[in-house]
Simulated scan of single mutants.
Amino acid sequence: MPRIPGPLRRFLPAGAPGPAAVAGVPQDRVADAIAELEAVFARLAPTEALCDGIVEQGRHDADELRRRAADEVRSIAATAEQRAAGERADAMARAQQVGRQVSDADLAAARARAARLRAQAERRMGDYVARVAAAVTELVDAAEDGPR
């Protein structure tokens, strides 16, 4: 038999590890493992199908919960928008009322000041009229007494 180089030597068929035994055909470990585990996997198939069903139901439930949550979010947002519009309208009405109250107070203060000025003018008017009348009389008298 030809000699095989070192690195390729590991690919040579070999018997089972352990004590020296009668030389034979190398054992097919993959086929043995498959044959041994086929029964286990066959018994696990219903459980695996049940798990797949549970996972699918979970996905369906999660999708339904997401849909409901999105509907609830839209409902809450619409309610909040309506409330906000109502609050804006109330705030505007309060601001207008405060503005009217301020305007009414300013108007009342202006009318009171005008009344005080009118009263003051009426008190002083007699004195001014008397002065003007005296000055006009003096001018008229001076014009009459003067050169003709």
Rank of each mutant, 00 (worst) to 15 (best):
I4G: 10
A108M: 00
A84Q: 08
A142Q: 11
I54K: 14
A78T: 07
E72F: 04
L50N: 10
D141Y: 01
S103Y: 02
Q27S: 04
A80G: 15
A115D: 13
A49H: 02
P5W: 04
I76S: 15
R111L: 12
Q120C: 03
D52W: 01
A135T: 08
A49Q: 11
G58Y: 06
A93F: 07
V102E: 14
A142L: 11
A130C: 02
A134V: 00
A91E: 12
F11C: 05
A78H: 01
V98N: 04
A31M: 06
A142D: 12
A142K: 08
Q27H: 04
A31S: 07
R66P: 06
R59A: 11
A130M: 06
R10M: 11
Y128A: 14
R111W: 03
D106G: 01
V136Q: 13
E81V: 07
D90Y: 06
A16N: 09
L139C: 12
G126D: 11
L139S: 14
E64Q: 14
P2D: 03
V55H: 08
R9M: 05
M125C: 06
D145W: 05
I34E: 10
D106N: 13
G15L: 07
D32A: 11
M125I: 02
V98G: 01
A16E: 15
A49N: 00
E138W: 04
P7I: 04
D141G: 07
